[in-house]
Design a protein around this nucleic acid. Sequence first.
DNA 1: AGAGAGAATGTGATCGATAACATTACCTAC
DNA 2: GTAGGTAATGTTATCGATCACATTCTCTCT
Lengths: 348, 348
Amino acid sequence: MEVTGHMPAQDAPRTRSASIWDVARVAGVSQQTVSRVINGKARVSETTRARVLQVIAELGYRPNRLAQALAGGPVRSVTVLTSDTALYGAAATLRGMEEAARTAGFSVGISVLERDSGQADIALRLNRPGEAVMVIAFDDAGVRALRALPADVPVTAAVERRPDDGPDDPWQIWLDDRAAAAHATRYLLSLGHQTVHYVAIPSSTSALPQRTQGWQDALRAAGRPLPEPLPGGWSPRSGYLAVRSLLADRSVTAILCGNDDLALGVMRAAREAGRDIPGDLSVVGFDDSPPSAYLNPALTTVRLDFEGLGRACFGLLNRRLDPQNAAAVPAWSEPELIVRESSGPAPA
Amino acid sequence: MEVTGHMPAQDAPRTRSASIWDVARVAGVSQQTVSRVINGKARVSETTRARVLQVIAELGYRPNRLAQALAGGPVRSVTVLTSDTALYGAAATLRGMEEAARTAGFSVGISVLERDSGQADIALRLNRPGEAVMVIAFDDAGVRALRALPADVPVTAAVERRPDDGPDDPWQIWLDDRAAAAHATRYLLSLGHQTVHYVAIPSSTSALPQRTQGWQDALRAAGRPLPEPLPGGWSPRSGYLAVRSLLADRSVTAILCGNDDLALGVMRAAREAGRDIPGDLSVVGFDDSPPSAYLNPALTTVRLDFEGLGRACFGLLNRRLDPQNAAAVPAWSEPELIVRESSGPAPA
DNA sequence: AGAGAGAATGTGATCGATAACATTACCTAC
DNA sequence: GTAGGTAATGTTATCGATCACATTCTCTCT
């Protein structure tokens, strides 16, 4: 059934939907003129424009973005490479990216990185060579993917830490976790705690994670004993396991956690050990994930603006793709300590 | 700088990466043969295949999926239309969809529906007319989007409820919320509670939500008083507000919540009202979101297999796109009541 | 030896758009 | 009245692949 037919087939499924040629034919102009109307770049007479627009509406024509992109139209799609979206940080960053991209008229693809996935196939996830990409590289898988990306790919990334060696990569952004962790630690010390223990999330690199470093910074600056960081994972369970044996020691009165999920596990372990929060033990989390404010007790935590970071990451990408007329990269909020019920003065 | 050059330009950025023609030229075959090697459909002699594969590796050639799709290759991309991914149900379903799609070699696009977004532009979010789509339609925005999709779009959807009127849409799937809510309600009644109150999530349609109906089913069957459902939103805060005044009434001893976030708010309201959970008041949630097991008290809730639902939704789409040789649609788990600490016998 | 069947490969059209260039029409200035 | 500029539009090549069909080559069978 061709679109050409003068006698419309009743309810017969159209083989395919209208193309730019169909519009051109019906409107009595060339496809180039239709293209001009669509893109609004070149000038078209008011009469012609109106006629074309009407035909477009009649035929229900929608441009095929694949064809547009193939023909060298402006890049209007991004693929986000992200690790486990079950984690609040990654999920919130993704939301920010998607929102910003969609608002700017980009279509966004998403591809989740398995924790143990090889890096060989990363390039194959792209829809075409040179596809624009954003990477959420808060963990090891993300960082590896970022590194495995071919050089010709325009990419920006939200990362855990600024690179240690060499100059900052202008296409990467991050939150100042280190300062935030230091701030949270100083807060706990100011409450009279002798020292602060730390349950760490896994690092994205072989180096010490930013949050761990910030915690150490604050303890060192205050001349306090510096306990070994307790290695945790990403889940409540891992936080629970990490501190279970530690809590018998009543001299442990303050615990900072690498994220809110760990804090959840720590609080449960504390409950089972008969420790009272915040009377006996102060617990501080990281991220300010949505449930935090409603936990029992409500969790003191560091609020991180992941969504803002995601939006900024897209802003950066947009600038990278089109330095001439890209909007300014939107700002994001600095980390902020939210004091709630789970922290208090050290026990007498 | 052409790819043709015999003298490779040092570090000069290649104008564009290798195409199928480049491979063909270097390998001394036609592009069609290269295409055959890539797709492995038709037969190519072992010698030729090896040579082509080697050239592909040398040139770092990667097929351009846009061009493949344009030229009528098999559909290998999906766009997921979803409402707010901050909600656990939608996020988990999305994860399931993405995983299944990626595993099947599909690239997946995502587009978030604003709660109040019009439906006129839905079709414009697709990369091309006829693009495959999955919709997560647990709320009103999702259902509207599903309805606004042009008829020529191959779509499957994860929905809140089976259609009331008319036959089931074979391309929609859902969890049996109604039975699950009834089961949870019966469980509470079996603990000796006189009746069960219910805090509802917003409905995706004008009709009564499935969970509300299931709750009513159980109360009716047991001949118990049927309180007005309390209208809640999606957030802990809305749960908190919905029950705050109710809790002064000590005869209220059991509350079922439309999701775990509402339960979180309900539990905080209970704490502030001096009610003891589960001694005084039993609270049951819905969804089994990740923090539930670690709350204080740990939340009794209905576990829903959203990821499985997402995988199945993709399985369905795959079958719709290619009925001939699509794998079986993977099964998903039935809802399951997980009894934890927040529920117990009615107070004497 | 010639016909016929497959296997392996090549050729040209096509998908739906954009880019570069060509052409037409009209208006103004000398 | 004709040259020249500009606005509006048409033509052709191209992006990177697939598809349908044509061609070549090699066997095998009679």
